[in-house]
Structure formats: C-alpha cells, structure tokens
Amino acid sequence: MTEKPAIKVEKLVKRFGANTVLSGIDLVVPRGQVTCLIGPSGSGKSTLLRCIAFLEEANEGLIEINGEPLGFTSGEYGERNRLPAAQIQKVRSHIGMVFQQFNLWPHMTALGNVAEALVTVRGMPRKAAEERAMAQLSNVGLSARAGHYPSELSGGQQQRVAIARALALDPDIMLFDEPTSSLDPELTGEVLNVMRELAQSGMTMLVVTHEIGFAASVGSKIVFLDHGEKIVEGRPDEVFGKPRHERIDQFLDTYLDRGAATLL
C-alpha cells in the first residue's frame, strides 16, 4: 500500500446547476507530506476538498483514498458505479476533516466533542474515550479547557478542539478547509502552530488555505487552482520562485498582506 498515494483524484468534474466549479481536476497527494491548495476565492479549492471528503458528490471522475475507490468505481465500459454507503464510511474513516467554521457541537464540552465519536461510532466505553480525548486535547494544548462549551472558547481554541476531535479517530489523512479564515489575525498563529507540529509528525495533510506564508514554509507541494482548473503545481520554490506563472503573480499581488510579501 505504501506505493499508492494517499489521495488520487482523476478528471474530477463538479457542477452546481449550470455552473462548472471543477472542470476535470487531476491531483495526487503524496503520503506523509503537506499539500496546500491555494487560489482566489471561487477557484473551486474548497469544493475539491469537500469532494475528497465526499461531502459533495462529483459529477464525473474518480477519487481514491489509499488506493481504495471513494463513492464510485469505474466500470467495465468506463461508466461510474456507485458504491454502497457502508463502503463510503469505511474509506472515509481514513480521513479527518477540519472546517472553516470549526463546526463543534454546541451542546457538548470540548472533551465531549472529542470523545463523542469514540463512544457513538467506535463503541468505546465512555471513560476510556474520555481518557483518549483528554490526551488529544493536551496535544493541542487545551487540557485546561476540557470542560468548557464551545461558546466559552475563543475561535482559535475552538479550531484546536476541532483538530483534536478529528485526530482522536486516528485518521491517516487530514483535510483542512481554510482552517484559519474565520479567525481573528492574532488567533491564527496558535492554529497554524498545531498544524505545523502535526506536519512534522509525518501526517498526510491536504490544506486549503489563504495563508500563503504557511503554505510556502510548511507545504511540500503547492497546487494552484483558478476557475476550477489546476494551473500550476510543484514544490513551493518552483511555484513561488521566479520565473513565475503570470496568474500566480496576479494572485500574490492581491495577497501581499497575507505573508506573501516575503516571497516577492
């Protein structure tokens, strides 16, 4: 299984009504590395991530997670065959997801949020689940906040709890959908630090982000999307270094204030 990439996306097409958001994306996410999806808003990067999480169903194309097909397989004549829901959940169990809006469950404490799936989905006893959840919370530096409800936590803390919640289920791939976009600037650092540590531990990560500085320093691979197409991909120095693709230039111009200044 090691030779298979963590995520493989082939000719993915996603339409919302008459609007084509992804027009035939190919993507390979290598294992144990951080891949960053960047691009202007509306470029389809979040949609691509959501398709890989199977929160959106692509209209065409195939996705493989650890070599296993997600949602659809290609049939004998190239047609797509739908896989049963149980198969989707099984493949999905390799994936942890972190959302822009944190999406912590408001009626559970930080500890409850992290322990919930261990009990409800994995059938662990409540006590063991909470011990494991506590360990995850202390990994993100929040053991002191375990008993707090999400409404009592700052945005940065909420997002760290959300990361702990995803990690508690032992995924081997982590998806991040603009994890710092709804945070105040002074709170993005704590979240990015947790992500940086996670990257150093060898987690496979696919990150949709506007933090160009983070992408350039932590990402081992940058994928630039625009208007639903993959424009450039490569190592950060290839993508951001000169000579630069004209559209990257335009994009970086608009992101000067987001840590991209150092790259120019």
């Binding site: 999905r92 997801m97 999406n103 919930e116 799936a117 995803a166 289920l169």
Partner: peptide, 20 residues
C-alpha cells in the same frame, strides 16, 4: 456544518439524529 462534522466522524444517520 454540524451534521457534516458528524458525517466526517463516521456517525450513522440515526446516530447523527439522536446525538446532534
């Protein structure tokens, strides 16, 4: 988003309804 988070954590539809 709260339901999507439950989906990503592997909740069945019944568990999502009951717990979330």
């Amino acid at each position: 988003g709260l339901i999507e988070a439950a989906n990503m954590c592997g909740f069945s539809p019944a568990a999502t309804f009951r717990r979330i």
